[in-house]
Simulated scan of single mutants.
Amino acid sequence: MNVDGALASGRAAAEARMRDTVRLYTQAEDTFDRPSGTTVPGAQSTLYSGKARVKAISASTGEETAAGEREIVLREYEVHLPWSTTLPGGTRVVPGARVEVTDSPDLRMVGLVLWVTGVSFSDQATAWRIRTEDRS
């Protein structure tokens, strides 16, 4: 089997394991509405919506860090999208974009929002891998 054939088989196998559904999006900065005293979330732009595989990178408990006045635990995840995924208008995924799990066989993951920390590219990969962290 040649390299292209092996990659096609590997990509098909990787997609078969993508049982979660996610939405990859960017969000503009929040604004503060003085009259109401509330924070208004920034506008969201969806870059991708579809199948994925979301997996914890390690079984560690995560890194504790301070955010504002509260402690949060950062847990790393890797999100696999189909290798053939294209984004609108040549958009690139950059740190700060978000991935929301919209459906999963593991119902505890539904609603999980992950923050993109890095993206990998390779012509010989079986899936497009996006490194993320859970900031809850």
Rank of each mutant, 00 (worst) to 15 (best):
N2K: 11
V3N: 07
V3S: 12
D4H: 14
G5D: 10
G10F: 09
A13N: 15
A14S: 12
A14D: 06
R19S: 09
R19T: 13
L24T: 01
Y25P: 01
Y25E: 04
T26Y: 03
E29C: 02
E29M: 03
D30M: 08
F32C: 05
D33K: 00
P35V: 07
T38Q: 14
T38P: 00
T39A: 10
V40M: 02
P41E: 01
P41S: 06
Q44F: 10
L47W: 01
S49V: 04
G50D: 11
G50R: 09
G50Q: 10
V54W: 02
K55P: 00
K55Y: 05
A56I: 00
S58W: 01
S58L: 01
S58C: 03
S58I: 00
S60W: 01
T61P: 12
G62L: 04
E63Q: 03
E63S: 11
E63Y: 02
E64W: 06
T65S: 08
A66K: 14
A66S: 14
A66M: 14
G68I: 04
E69R: 12
R75S: 14
R75V: 14
E76R: 07
Y77V: 04
E78F: 05
V79W: 01
H80K: 11
L81M: 09
P82R: 00
W83A: 15
W83G: 06
W83C: 07
S84F: 01
L87M: 02
P88S: 07
G89Q: 02
G90K: 03
R92G: 06
V93H: 01
V93L: 04
V93S: 00
V94P: 13
P95V: 01
V101Q: 09
V101F: 08
D103E: 13
D103K: 09
D103H: 11
P105N: 03
D106N: 15
G111W: 13
L114M: 05
L114G: 11
W115P: 04
W115G: 12
T117N: 10
T117W: 06
G118T: 10
G118M: 12
G118Q: 12
G118E: 11
V119T: 04
S120Q: 09
S120P: 01
F121L: 11
Q124M: 07
A125V: 04
T126E: 04
A127Q: 03
R131P: 05
R131W: 15
R131F: 15
T132Q: 13
E133N: 15
E133R: 15
E133C: 15
D134N: 14
R135S: 12
